[in-house]
Write a protein that binds this DNA or RNA. Sequence first.
RNA 1: GCGAGUGUCGCCAAGAGGUCAAGGCCCCGGUUUGUGGUACCGGUAUACGUGGGUUCGAUUCCCAUCACUCGCCCCA
Length: 422
Amino acid sequence: MPINAVKGMPDILPVDSAAWQQIEQAFTETVSRAGYGLIRPPLLENTELFERGVGDSTDIVTKEMFTIEREHRRMTLRPEGTAGVVRAFIEHGLSRRPKPVRLAYLGPMFRYERPQAGRQRQFHQAGVELFGVDSAAADVEVIQLAMAVIRAWQIPPERCVLSVNNVGTPEDRNTFSEAIRASLASFDHKICPDCRARLIKNPIRVLDCKVDSCKSLYGELKLSEKLAEIVADGDSQPAFEQTCLLLGDLAITYTLNSGLVRGLDYYTRTVFEITATSGLGSQNAVCGGGRYNQLVAQLGGPPTPAVGFAFGLERILSLCNEFNREAFCLKPAVDIFVASDNASAALQIAEMLRNLGKFVTVALESKPIGKWLEQANKQGATTALLQGENERAAGAWIIKDLQSGHQQVYEHSGLQHYFSSQ
RNA sequence: GCGAGUGUCGCCAAGAGGUCAAGGCCCCGGUUUGUGGUACCGGUAUACGUGGGUUCGAUUCCCAUCACUCGCCCCA
């Protein structure tokens, strides 16, 4: 019985890993240029971190976590990156570093969902978090950076749209929550069970409901307009308006979407989302982010404003594949193919050439020269370095250019000089 | 959790209720035993997801099951 991969946990094979490397490298280069340092938190955290950080009424926490239990400790494979970064920020005293503290991360996340196009149980995110500054400029730096990353991936700008919204202060949200409870009090029987639960734990999330009957009811009751009104009168509005102004100054186009409520509880004020205009089906959100001014304090750190985003890399990869396939062509992985009946000579030469920075593979079996060349060709080598019986007796090697077919015989002692000038 | 679709060699892919289940790619060998890429010839493989049922006979029909894919939901 063969053993298969766990559902939703795909292998990334060598043919795809070049593209992955480029995507990851473009990300880290872009964010590094903006002063973000890479942090690599563990994949496993105490479950409580996500319950408190992401929010224990969110779908992520209530039904999507991979949790294991050992010696009465519950630990969970990270379903997102922010909570772990914030935990590390607090734990290592990064809050005492000069502000702002800029961090970036990259790696696999785990959510127990039903796999489909653009959604796996193990997937990869790349994101940044900016700590310690509450200004609109900080919001905009992060959004600007997200757009720069998209450019670095060479995704055409018209392929993506940016939506922003103000979800208000915690006080706004409390006011709104009470308003929702009041408006829906008499509709208890008309709303879906999920919404009934939301009403108790986190009423603002009813705006996220996709059930038609709920949507139309909330539409009639003008719930999202109500949120917008409360927020517009609240303390966060001036800064949010400033954020919009700055986006305008930078010629970053966006749409205001008052229905944009992120699925994680920690957001305050500015939230944003970048969606692909086509090509990804229903899983079209490629980036989500926003401000979370309460989270650090909520996880036991000193009150610290923060803002960040995360990209879903599988979705980015499929956009890049669609529009920029050549950019991800695997360059020939092999420069030089070394073959000799004398294995130790071949292995030594290969080592020498690798030390010169060449990509080198070795023939591991004695074969006729024609077979070696065939093998070299199949591996995509550009040069073959061969030593058959004759050359071996003479202490020489054949250097053959596999494109032109030209070849020359070189003394063993001349090889290093020859290849170091290539 | 709910709905739909698909399951034939490593990959792609024909097929039909009944002799050996096409073909292509890949891989291996040969023509060319020390010179590759093209061409031609040949070869390898426990391939009809699994379990039942109908039938003289099923890979083909039916049922169930599993896996994968897609959609809902949710999110990146």
